[in-house]
Structures are given as C-alpha cells and as structure tokens.
Write a protein that binds this DNA or RNA. Sequence first.
DNA 1: GTCTATACGTCGATAGAC
DNA 2: GTCTATCGACGTATAGAC
Lengths: 214, 214
Amino acid sequence: MYGAIMSSTRKPPPATRERLVSTTQELLWERGYVGTSPRAILDRAGVGQGSMYHHFTGKSDLAQAAIRRTAEDMKESAEECLSAPGTAYDRVAAYLTRERQVLRGCPIGRMTQDRDVVQDPELRRPLDEMFGWLRGRIAEVLAEGQRRGELADGLDPVAVAATVAAVVQGGYVLARAADDTAPFDAAVRGALSLLAAQVTPGTGSDHTGPGDRR
Amino acid sequence: MYGAIMSSTRKPPPATRERLVSTTQELLWERGYVGTSPRAILDRAGVGQGSMYHHFTGKSDLAQAAIRRTAEDMKESAEECLSAPGTAYDRVAAYLTRERQVLRGCPIGRMTQDRDVVQDPELRRPLDEMFGWLRGRIAEVLAEGQRRGELADGLDPVAVAATVAAVVQGGYVLARAADDTAPFDAAVRGALSLLAAQVTPGTGSDHTGPGDRR
DNA sequence: GTCTATACGTCGATAGAC
DNA sequence: GTCTATCGACGTATAGAC
C-alpha cells in the first residue's frame, strides 16, 4: 500500500498535524462547528496555538480536513454493509441495522445544521459528496435487486434510496430529541417492514412480517 | 376565547416581550442555539439589553419560551394535515407533502443537534414532547386506517409512524447537504410509494404506482 | 515546527440611571 | 420597563522568540 513509487507524495505525516485533525473530528461531532473553538481543539490535542496556524490557515481549514476525513470514514463503513453478500434487502438491512452510536448522532449529518458549514462551499462539499454517494450506492443495490428479480419492478430505486438514507438521518434526530434510541430503532424497523413488502416471494432469505409467523 | 373570567390570567402581553420571543424563534431557526447571541436577538428586535433581562432570566430562559412556541406552532400545522378528511394514506401523504421551506430545515429538528439544548432538560422537553406527539398522532392515523380496512394488517403503526417522521427530518438533512430540495422530495416520494403498497385495493382514492399505470 | 504573548472583538450577565 | 455602561471570560488570529 505504501509503495516506494508513491513515496514522494506519501510522506510520513507529522504527528502533530494528525493529532489536530483527529481531535477536530471528535469535537465537531460533539459540539458542531460553531461550538468548536480552536482553543478547545488545542487543549484536547495538547499542542500550542502556533502549531495549528503552521499546518492550517485557520479554523475552517482545519475543519475542512477533519470533515473530509470523517466523510471518507463513513463512506467506508457504509460500503462494508452495502457490498456484503446476500440479497438487496439483506444489504440494505445490514446498512440500516449496523451498530451506531445513535445518541451521538451522525457526525456528517450534524454538520448540515451548522450555518457556517453549509454556507461555505468548501466545507459543504464533503457532505454533499458523501450523501450523494450514499444515495447512489443504495440505489444501485436496489436496482441490482430488481434486475435479479428479488424486488418488485414498481419500486423506484432512486426514491427509495433517498428514503433509506433519510430514515437513518431522521432517526438520529428523533432519538436525540427523546434522549432514547427507541425512536431510531422504530424508524428503521418500520422502513424494513415496508421494504420487505417489496421482496418477491421465494427469493433470498426470510423477511416475513409478524403477520406471517407460525 | 378571551373570556372576562380569564382576564386575570390572560393579561395583554407586553409588546417587547413578544418581540423578543418571535425574534428568538427566527434566530434559533437560522443559527441554532450556540450560534444565537443575546446581542443578535436584541439588535434584530430593536430593544435594549435591560429589557431582555427584565422579562427573562437569561439566554436559555428566552430560548425556552421561543422553542416552546415553535413546537406548538409545528404541532398545529401538522395536526391540520393529519386531521384532514380522507383515508389514512391521504392524511399521511398530506403531512409528508405539505409545503415546507426545505432548505431552511426543521426549526425543532435543528435543536436536536445543539449540545446545550439536548443537555438542558428544560430546553429538550419541548422537542421530546413535540416529536413524541407527532409519532403518536401518525400512529393513530395509521391504526385507524387499519381498523377501517384501508391498510394491511401486517403494518406496525408505531414503527411506520417513526419512519414517516424520520423521513421528513432526514430529508431536511439530505437537502441541506446537497443545497437542493431534490433529495427531500425523493425521500418523501419513496416513502409514499412504499406506504401505497400497504393500501388495501379498492379502498379510498387511487395511489397506484408507476407499474400499474395504463 | 512549536511555543508563548498579545491583540481586539464578542459572549453572556450585572449595575444602576432614567 | 427600558436604557447604557461596564465586567470578566472566551473567540479567532497574528507576532515573534526559540
């Protein structure tokens, strides 16, 4: 992975810069953009003011690096579920039910509620790319399921993909309002039950609802 | 409505207090809690510092009044859709497709991303009550639809109600990330198509999907 | 590269005049 | 009730020593 040919562009990253980025990732998740001060980042990272302004032009530049990194991380963990073996339903279900720190919310979704982030094209771009990719990827999985005859032809992959992504993001909102993960779980359960009704009988594993239990 | 008997508890509200609350509602929607300073509120409301600390104990007290008011407003407008005549599907569809300022996001949902709000029980309570009521009300509508034979028996009203509420909240997130209302509309469209598949044939109006067009 | 010192604005709250 | 003046703390950024 760290080929000698790439050595000129793959310098060993300075530990300080690295600490700044990961600490900023944490704080942005906890407190959002406006709620995160350079001071707080430096204190937690244990570095001085000068280091930050040496490696980055300022708060937004550092935040940009942190948001990019977080978006990439989320993409990877989503892809892990969506590219798993199994039916389209199974893969979407794997994404919806994968382990999450529900009450902490989505580190990327949270950024969309931050005025300074959404208004700055450089800060918003990683969010846009991440969610755009996610909706597209889920739509692919659903469309593939249709081609395989697993899912009903009437299903609109693009629309339902947006629904699936929205259920997760909205589930976080409902859970945080209630200070309880139950609404998140309920929203996911409801979405899966509605999706299960689109599964062609006889294909893949068993997703029958409570009404069909015996 | 303003009966003489209630006159002792229904004093004419001071205009200044009123201005402070509605201005705070606006600013909380635009900038969130951490992003809204008393200074900004006072400037926009056109009142002095002293007035605010006369009517309220401080920022959080004023914010509490504003959030409560906003939550009540949202409840009313949601109830308007959900109590409309028509089938359960029609009423849920009315809620999902009602006019919204999508890119501005949900004034209540946004608060859930604010650390200071969620951590303060007094500030969080209105959010909890509002979303709790909403999920319950949608669940009622769905359950009623089932009793009337409009919706499939297998449908779980509580779970699907959470899904419906989550789709709206998540739709806002996706739309703001994209700076485009399209993902919101797609998420709603997907949810409605999935719900339409739960409608008992022959009941109520026509919700057939694209696959059934002729 | 990393540090401390400093600048200058804003934050949220209080004091006290009118 | 409403205003202005003022407070101590914190926000983001720069300067310059080491």
